[in-house]
Design a protein around this nucleic acid. Structure first.
Length: 487
RNA sequence: GGGCCGCUAGCUCAAUUGGCAGAGCAAGAGACUCUUAAUCUCUAGGUUCCAGGUUCGAGUCCUGGGCGGCUCACCA
């Protein structure tokens, strides 16, 4: 546990131990599309940063967003007209929905908000601001001066021939495009390169002012040096042989003369029923969506799993209630089983007082007392019921007209049964007593329990089955039940 | 082809950095006048993918192999 009560996992402690004294700069970086792998990466970094802090090291914890990167392709849901911005920096492309200053901000801001909701102590850096602020000026100059060595490394690692005119620096042309230009000359005393663009126009770009960027693989190594990075987690797409870390490692030690930062390789997350996460296929899960159904620490537990170097499959549907109960049990506090919260939430909507009454009837006195926490738990349960729950667990109370209509579909035996039950319900009956009335009335009338209960559910929630009937009805206002049963 | 991950009870997964293989659900028996994702009690369930190796001791570490998933090609 650290001072904020966040548990430090064993694997993170081991990583921290291997990193030495410090001071440390822990960085985690994403391109601004913000899916759940990114969250896993950020949480891995956070766990290591916390472990380092717990060991007494000085730690700077950075979230690096690739805002200067060029728009590559039109993601699903983005207007076709955005094709004209391909090759432009995301920080200079308009927001497709018009709600933020740029395309980059549109995707970054919700992620930033989620980080704030997670109460994460992290410093957010936008790459276009780093370039514009001159943070990379020195490493860019170094990179351009060592163009041949960098090219050799790329060729050796990837086994491919790089073009003759290859440059580690991509100047931004007058058109706004970062791609397609060719660097002709370096003017180090002015921090500029002279380039020729796609159309043959010659111009100069000032790399101390963000008028261009380093190519991705070079930038990775350059960033380590420019920000003094000592640890960065990577997904397996980067750590494959021939991948970006292999090139960056060599560039860092052979060209930039900077020790390769510590590393943790994490595995992918997939969602049960949806398959692997893929922003290009539109299978994306945003941290904010998950914070709608569980508190931040539960999300940490879920995303990190036993060990983030293992692949996991998230079960957000049928298996989720058990996960939540386990999480609550680990916290060591009394809790209401999640499935029960789901029933309560769907019954009372946002009425926390009504929920408290229902919970008291069910014997959850303590949970009913802490109104603030109850409201939060109901929020999670209600969202889960609406967004993830299997159909069998979903219901809502029918309104008066619907109930009347459903009642009219029942046969005479069922209607008479309901009328008799409503006459036998007394104020203050607990769940068990109601259950007894429901069951014995059916037996006495020679009505099969299955059909009797089906009638009950039909007029209350419009389905033929539902939550355990006795406690459920005991938690509802009696007048409402009597009204529904008078068919 | 290279890399990463997985393979443990019928199913989903645990096993705290080598120390008596466990849990939830499913199954079987019993109880409750009992519809439900029912509840309570009990039972059974295993060559930990295969073959070697290290060790007093291996699900765990090493070597080789099988099957499955994912990932990599200068694109960030």
């Amino acid at each position: 546990m650290n001072e904020r009560g966040i548990r430090i996992p064993g694997w993170a402690e081991r990583v921290a131990e291997s990193l030495g004294e410090g001071p440390h700069v822990v960085v985690t970086g994403i391109s601004p599309s913000g899916n759940i792998h990114n969250l896993r990466e950020v949480l891995v970094a956070e766990a290591v940063a916390n472990a380092l802090k717990a060991r007494g090291a000085e730690v700077r914890f950075i979230f690096h967003a690739d805002t200067i990167d060029p728009l590559r392709k039109i993601a699903p849901g983005i207007p076709e007209s955005f094709k004209e911005y391909i090759g432009h920096s995301l920080s200079r492309v308009p927001d497709p929905e018009g709600c933020h200053d740029s395309y980059a901000e549109h995707f970054l801001v919700p992620f930033e908000e989620a980080l704030a909701e997670m109460e994460m102590d992290i410093e957010v850096l936008r790459s276009h601001e780093l370039y514009e602020g001159g943070v990379y000026t020195g490493v860019i100059r170094e990179a351009i001066e060592h163009t041949d060595e960098l090219r050799n490394i790329l060729q050796e690692v990837s086994g491919r021939q790089m073009p003759e005119h290859w440059s580690p620096f991509l100047p931004r042309a007058a058109s706004g495009k970062l791609t397609g230009s060719r660097v002709l000359e370096h003017v180090p005393e002015e921090n500029k390169v002279v380039y020729v663009d796609e159309d043959g126009w010659e111009d100069a770009a000032d790399y101390s002012k963000g008028e261009g960027k380093l190519g991705w693989r070079v930038e990775l190594a350059a960033r380590w040096k420019a920000l003094n990075v000592t640890f960065e987690p990577f997904g397996k797409d980067h750590t494959s042989r021939g991948g970006s870390t292999e090139t960056a490692d060599r560039m860092s030690s052979e060209v930039f003369d900077y020790p390769v930062p510590g590393r943790y390789e994490y595995e992918w997350i997939s969602i049960k029923g949806q398959g692997a996460m893929s922003s290009s296929k539109g299978i994306v899960l945003l941290p904010k969506e998950l914070l709608r159904i569980m508190p931040p620490d539960a999300l940490r537990k879920m995303m990190l799993g036993r060990d983030p170097s293992r692949a996991i499959e998230l079960d957000l549907a049928g298996g989720f209630p058990r996960f939540m109960d386990e999480y609550r049990a680990e916290a060591g506090e009394p809790y209401v089983p999640f499935t029960h919260l789901v029933t309560v939430a769907q019954t009372v909507g946002e009425d926390a007082d009504a929920a408290a009454r229902m919970l008291r009837r069910g014997g959850y006195e303590e949970a009913a007392r802490d109104r603030e926490r109850l409201a939060r738990d109901l929020y999670y349960a209600r969202n889960w019921a609406e967004e993830w729950a299997p159909e069998s667990m979903r219901f809502r109370l029918t309104d008066k007209e619907e109930s009347f209509y459903n009642g009219a579909q029942l046969d005479d035996e069922q209607r008479e049964y309901l009328r008799e039950v409503s006459g036998r319900l007394e104020p203050g009956m607990d769940g068990e007593a109601v259950q007894e009335v429901l069951y014995s009335t059916a037996i006495e009338r020679g009505l099969k329990p299955k059909r009797a209960f089906a009638a009950v559910y039909r007029v209350l929630i419009g389905k033929s089955s539902g939550p355990k009937a006795g406690p459920f009805i005991a938690g509802l206002p009696r007048d409402q039940v009597v009204e529904r049963f008078s068919v």
